[in-house]
Amino acid sequence: MKIFVCVKQVPGVSEIKIDPKTNTLVREGVESVINPNDRNAIELALTLKEKHGAEVLVLSMGPPQAEEILRESIAMGADKGFLLTDRAFAGADTLATSYTLSLAIKKILKESDPEEKYLVICGAQAIDGDTGQVPPELAEELGIPQIAYVLSIELNEDKIVAERKFRAVEIVVIETKLPALISVLNDINKPRYPSMAGILKAHDNSKITYYNAQDLNADEAKIGLNGSSTEVWKIFAPERKGNRVILRGTLEEIVQQLCQNLKDDKIL
């Protein structure tokens, strides 16, 4: 069995923000990392590999620097990495991204054993975009069922049974057939760190394959900016309202003022 894991390189998110005074981006010490949910996806793939035996293939679409996260995935224990990199892929929204990823998966399957069963695991969403749209769109492009926000999974021959987060307090147990795609959040597992030996092995160059648009035989109208239906019109700092009345006085006075205000606001 093959397990495909799709990963994305993202900026460490808590540090990137807009300075509300100057409306400019502040990127202090932003370092690129594997998207956190994607690390959970890798961990799940490695756990399944340890239990059932599988080849874990990690895919990423991104600039050449994204090679680093593939190496880190291999250091964690993945077998091979595939970097889909081409200027033509730039500016992709989720539609174009899922198309490009699907081409790579199809190509890899075609070049090994097209009949082999497979599972695709994605992080449910990326911390930079937060859209969570690539996994379902990729499943649609591959024509396979998907289970999103999976909390646990059992693999049984060509069937999977997964627990899916459905509402805040409800979990649905779903059964579906392979091939399938699942997406995971950070509550499914705790990703391992790559061991030092893993890190040293990850720098064996034969483990990473590079695909450009031509290698994938991609339709130019469907990739990158051309293949994107949405576009960013503008970005800005979140507006913060609130009238900032700081109540002062003794504790009793403060509480009196607060209750009076809330009465005036017709809340109490």
Partner: peptide
């Protein structure tokens, strides 16, 4: 080297 950079990054995260 790339190896050393990764060693540094991972060891820092771990620590």
């Amino acid at each position: 080297t790339e190896k050393q950079k990764m060693l540094k990054k991972i060891t820092r995260q771990f620590a």
